[in-house]
């Protein structure tokens, strides 16, 4: 009898120790994530005015709406100014979402291909791996944001293009023209060319993803390939029958990472706008409303893509 009670308390003690270990996270999440989240949600429905010395005061950002003939006061004025008043928010949001969709697909494909290549045996592999991982450093934090504003590079590129344009050709534009003339090109090709033009951004954003795929590839036991080889599989077949199914669970991890990374990047123009509205115009309510809209979009994308990918992975295996 007493032995039973002792067993339970032992378990309870283990549970308590576990809670002690994750206590920093619990405190942090409640104080600095959950509460600010609720707070910023509240702020997005209010006009926030800073009061020096004692914080800020809020009044409901009401706006009269006419729904089905009934006049209603709804605290949606901040959302209204985000969508209907701010001249930059809407176009930038649409543009960034489009860019995100194409870039995510391109990043996944490219990082997978590069990981497969870097997993092969060739001279200078260590150096190549080191260089492909360099973007994790070079495109973090403030650096890509500053590079994006770098109109001088654009200007230089423009000059180089016009100089070359006299005698030479811009290959991607020429190819596009050619395809359009021959009637093949449609909107699909526009997307493809958009990806080609964004290849620098894509490579710079795929450092971590390459490593994740690479670790997945290295975890595949070589004996699987040997067995396939003995059975007469070609390299192409064993790629689709072994490599791809074994690595495809990582596709989801990478996809989510890419989307999240894209949404938080400093060169993201929606983020830039939110920062401007907050720090320069001091419209905290509108900035909160904008970030909530943006977060909602991000979450929808993550859920959608995880749904699609997990279905696809299941059917591939």
């Amino acid at each position: 009898m007493s032995r039973d009670r002792k067993l339970i308390t032992m378990q309870q003690r283990r549970a308590r120790t576990g809670y002690m270990f994750i206590l920093p996270f619990i405190i942090g999440f409640v104080l600095f994530m959950a509460r600010p989240l609720i707070q910023s949600l509240i702020m997005s429905f209010n006009d926030v005015v800073l009061v020096p010395g004692q914080g800020y005061s809020m009044t409901a950002a009401n706006r009269t709406y006419n729904i089905l003939g009934i006049e209603m006061m709804l605290p949606l004025d901040n959302y209204h100014s985000a969508f209907a008043v701010d001249p930059y928010f809407n176009p930038r949001l649409v543009e960034e979402i489009g860019r995100m969709a194409t870039n995510t697909i391109a990043t996944l494909v490219l990082s997978f291909v590069i990981a497969v290549i870097l997993n092969q045996d060739f001279k200078g592999r260590t150096l190549a791996r080191a260089i492909f991982f360099l973007p994790v450093i070079l495109s973090s934090g403030v650096l890509p944001g500053i590079e994006k504003q770098n109109e001088f590079y654009d200007m230089m590129a423009g000059v180089a293009e016009s100089v070359k344009g006299a005698g030479g050709v811009n290959i991607s534009a020429a190819l596009q023209d050619l395809l359009q003339v021959s009637g093949v090109a449609g909107s699909v090709f526009d997307v493809v060319f958009q990806m080609i033009d964004a290849i620098y951004d894509i490579v710079m954003a795929s450092g971590i993803q390459i490593i994740v795929f690479l670790t997945g590839l290295q975890a595949i036991s070589p004996s699987l390939y040997e067995a396939a080889d003995v059975e007469g599989c070609t390299a192409w077949e064993s790629f689709w029958k072994i490599t791809f199914p074994m690595v495809s669970p990582l596709l989801l991890v990478n996809c989510i990472y890419t989307i999240v990374d894209f949404f938080m990047k400093n060169d993201n123009r929606v983020m830039e706008r939110i920062s401007t509205v907050m720090y320069s115009d001091a419209k905290f309510g509108v900035a909160s409303a904008m970030s909530w809209v943006y977060f909602g979009v991000a979450l929808a994308f993550i859920l959608l893509s995880s749904f699609i990918i997990s279905r696809a992975v299941k059917s591939a295996q």
Binding site: R35, L37, G55, Y56, I274, F295, A298
Partner: peptide, 22 residues
């Protein structure tokens, strides 16, 4: 924890600003 990875800190930046300024 997974939510922490996914939620952009930009969502809470104005609230954090207020929290730590006061």
């Amino acid at each position: 924890v997974v939510a922490l990875i996914i939620i952009p800190p930009q969502t809470i930046q104005s609230a954090l600003y207020m929290n730590f300024a006061n």
